[in-house]
Design a protein around this nucleic acid. Structure first.
Lengths: 236, 236
DNA sequence: GGCATTCTTCGTGAAATGTCGAAATGGGAT
DNA sequence: ATCCCATTTCGACATTTCACGAAGAATGCC
């Protein structure tokens, strides 16, 4: 739950700029929020300083997604090189202290990903349910801490921006608690992945619970770190 | 806390599209997420259907912020006209049930707004602290419900994307509780507005508490509904 | 299978973007 | 007041976008 902040911030910045009546002003606001002089930004972007000025002054009324993205990314990179002072400031507001003990990783895909491809990447086998589905994102959750630390209203946060996702519960013993939690909660994911367990060790109630909410259940014994880096490394 | 969802969703969509390697695909994903056929979208945008196709196929590698914004807005408008089915689905995931009892409104400005202008719009007078400041957003909070319902980690959510904001606490009796809550909490707003109270009724401890965290405190007796609509109606 | 409807591909022209570099502007320091 | 620095303004030009409409590909419905 560290690198997620950068992406989330980038999306917020890009969204705000894109929707603004004057993208230039919004661009300027963010550059200033990060205390970056126009010259420095221009240098990092390898463009002349006048380019920055032109955008911020609004000479180009509707800049393309490419430069907006490049500028946002560059602003964040400059801050990272300076120790990530402003990024961390945002991170502190956005995430509570406990977040990184509960949500290890959360990501939204820009286009649908088929469950079978997904399963292959994380080395998971099917326990029950159909593999003929697509997901829009995933969340890697520490099962124990989620149950211990999240209030019922906070529990929803594991769904990010879409319930059409895979919830990967780590280090489960029998997998019963996560499935029960989902059973009694209003939102249902497309898929649940039980990590650190073999199909044989899974609690016998699980297929029944999954069936009720039409959830596909997978198992994987690949360790958490590997799963996270595989998912981050795979660009769909 | 109703109309906020639309804006937040719009920003997420725009941000994702803008940062995507293929904005066209991202655009398509969102149109499909809302179950809107290309033809319908084209008609509402008053452009030929081929335009949609061209964007989604990626013929324009870097569409301008203007059309991205227009398309996002149109997708949301079409859904609203259909009863807001998909918007509501996102709203349910994003907000817990209690949110609308606690946070009446939350907004981020794309450019800084001076405190004195802000105070004028909500009909507030200065109690203590400097008016020579700028804010980047505001939150209107039901004081009682916030104290009763929010956990300490959830409390941070009132800050939205920036602490450089005004927190408007509604229907306070003496204003002491909100100021105490802020005192013991790690983040500090630029400004606190106590609603439903005159300067004379404010608890005597407040200027001292505010001084410690360099917070400007304002009072207003304008009613909550009026404040919210004034703020929404004022485009800075 | 055939026909209607919808969607995609593609050539095209007007308008706008993306970038530069020269010139003008605006603060600080000296 | 003057010099130096960083920033803004602006003309120029190659490259793209934006939108259209015609023609080709899909899709679905008798």
């Amino acid at each position: 739950m560290k690198s997620g902040v950068r992406h989330q911030l980038a999306e917020k910045m890009a969204g705000e700029i894109t929707l603004s009546d004057s993208p230039g002003q919004a661009l300027k606001k963010w550059r200033q929020s990060f205390n970056i002089p126009p010259g420095v930004l221009a240098e990092r972007l390898e463009v002349s300083p006048s380019v920055i000025s032109d955008y911020e002054s609004g000479r180009r009324k509707s800049p393309g997604t490419a430069i907006v993205g490049k500028i946002v990314d560059t602003i964040l990179s400059i801050d990272e090189d300076n120790g990530g002072r402003y990024i961390n400031k945002f991170a502190k507001i956005l995430y509570s202290e406990f977040d990184e003990d509960v949500i290890y990783d959360i990501h939204e895909y820009a286009s649908p990903v088929s469950l079978s491809e997904f399963a292959e990447v994380i080395g998971a086998v099917t326990l029950c349910g159909s593999m003929d589905q697509a997901i829009y994102g995933y969340t890697v959750i520490n099962s124990l801490n989620a149950i211990l630390q999240l209030s019922s209203s906070e529990f929803n946060r594991i769904y990010g921006w879409s319930t059409e996702r895979a919830l990967i519960f780590t280090e489960v013993s029998t997998g019963k608690s996560p499935m029960v939690a989902i059973r009694v909660t209003p939102f249902k994911p497309r898929c649940v992945v039980l990590q650190g367990i073999s199909p044989g060790e899974v609690h016998p109630l699980i297929p029944g619970l999954a069936e009720r909410d039409r959830i596909t259940v997978l198992c994987t014994e690949v360790d958490v770190e590997t799963i996270i880096s595989s998912l981050r490394g795979t660009l769909w």
